[in-house]
């Protein structure tokens, strides 16, 4: 668990962070989002002391981060940035294993761990000997994530890691990351300026503006509960539609129907936003097949579901 209390940060006379309080529970992914200059990156970097704060305390698993030698702290925290920062003179394997080598792991243990991580991020094992300049943007970022996770740190800090990728690659890597997170349940603090990314990846969203947290809620709760005008204007009027992307048809819990003619080639993994779009195109209920079973999908199924999520969030 990470607790930030009354964090203040000044750049010259400019207040980048004003008395910010935030508590991040184990295993949850908190997304810091806001316009440029709101202080989200500064807040993130204060956790692993890449930035020194001027006032306030940060405790990391109940230990003040100032009480540890900074290298020890950082070895327990994974850090991913937009530029990735892979070491150009080392190949993929050496990049991922660098901390392991310093911690004097055995050769076989290092090999095993690197393979594990590559498989988890869906990268071919043959990439081990590639140099960073041979990788595409998406591949490099995946290697960056592997490197951050090498020592299996409990916490992962991510500063707009997918910002430099093209939309298609970004979507793929977001989904891959979400899957990894669901498997590993790391505590993640994620900075982004993209509200859709925040909805997709975050268990809770911390909306920031001018050095303060304006609102801290789950993505669903934000549909109805918008405390400030700022929140309304930042997340936009079509926010509810964006939340749909967080879920899949599978989550609706549809029961299989008797054999009818299949009208569309979607499946249980299709996200709800696409499914809703399909319902709009089609006047009749959407009939699709997943595996051996045939299903029927109607508008109302989706609405009922989303209503249910909102009510749950309100409690």
């Amino acid at each position: 668990m990470i607790k930030l209390s009354q964090i203040r940060k000044l750049y010259d006379t400019q207040e980048a962070l004003r008395n910010v309080d935030l508590q991040i529970e184990d295993g949850e992914c908190v997304v810091l989002i806001g316009p440029s200059g709101c202080g989200k990156s500064s807040l993130l970097k204060s956790i692993n002391r890449m930035i020194d704060i001027d006032a306030g305390t940060i405790t990391f698993f109940n230990q003040d981060i100032q009480s540890l030698p900074v290298e020890q702290l950082r070895r327990k925290i994974g850090y991913c940035i937009q530029g990735v920062g892979l070491f150009p003179h080392m190949n993929v394997k050496e990049n991922i294993a660098i901390l392991l080598r310093i911690l004097k792991w055995k050769e076989e243990d290092m090999d095993r761990r690197v393979d594990e991580l590559l498989v988890m991020s869906e990268l071919p094992l043959s990439y081990k000997t590639k140099k960073p300049h041979e990788l595409s943007g998406g591949e490099a970022q995946r290697v960056g994530v592997c490197r951050a996770l090498a020592t299996d740190p409990p916490v992962l800090l991510m500063d707009e890691p997918f910002g430099a990728l093209d939309p298609m690659t970004r979507e793929k890597i977001q989904i891959a990351f979400r899957d990894i997170q669901q498997k590993l349940h790391k505590t993640v603090v994620f900075v982004t300026h993209d509200i859709e990314e925040a909805i997709l990846l975050g268990d809770r969203i911390a909306l920031m503006n001018e050095g303060q947290i304006v609102q801290l809620s789950t993505p669903e709760a934000l549909i109805k509960d918008q405390k400030e005008n700022f929140t309304k204007s930042f997340i936009g009027q079509d926010y509810p539609l964006m939340v749909l992307k967080r879920y899949r048809v599978r989550d609706l819990g549809l029961k299989p129907h008797s054999n009818e003619t299949v009208t569309h080639a979607i499946d249980l993994n299709t996200n709800l936003k696409e499914a809703l779009a399909l319902c709009i195109k089609q006047s009749e209920p959407v009939v699709f097949k997943d595996g051996q079973e045939t299903y029927q999908l109607k508008y109302s199924d989706i609405f009922t579901f989303i209503r249910g999520m909102q009510d749950e969030a309100a409690h």
């Binding site: 290298e71 950082r74 937009q82 150009p88 901390l99 960056g144």
Partner: peptide, 18 residues
């Protein structure tokens, strides 16, 4: 030297000598 590379080295927890 690329600042991104230097940042990630710092964040990994490597000492300045390392």
């Amino acid at each position: 030297l690329d600042p991104a590379v230097m940042d990630s080295a710092k964040a990994l927890g490597l000492s300045s000598k390392q």
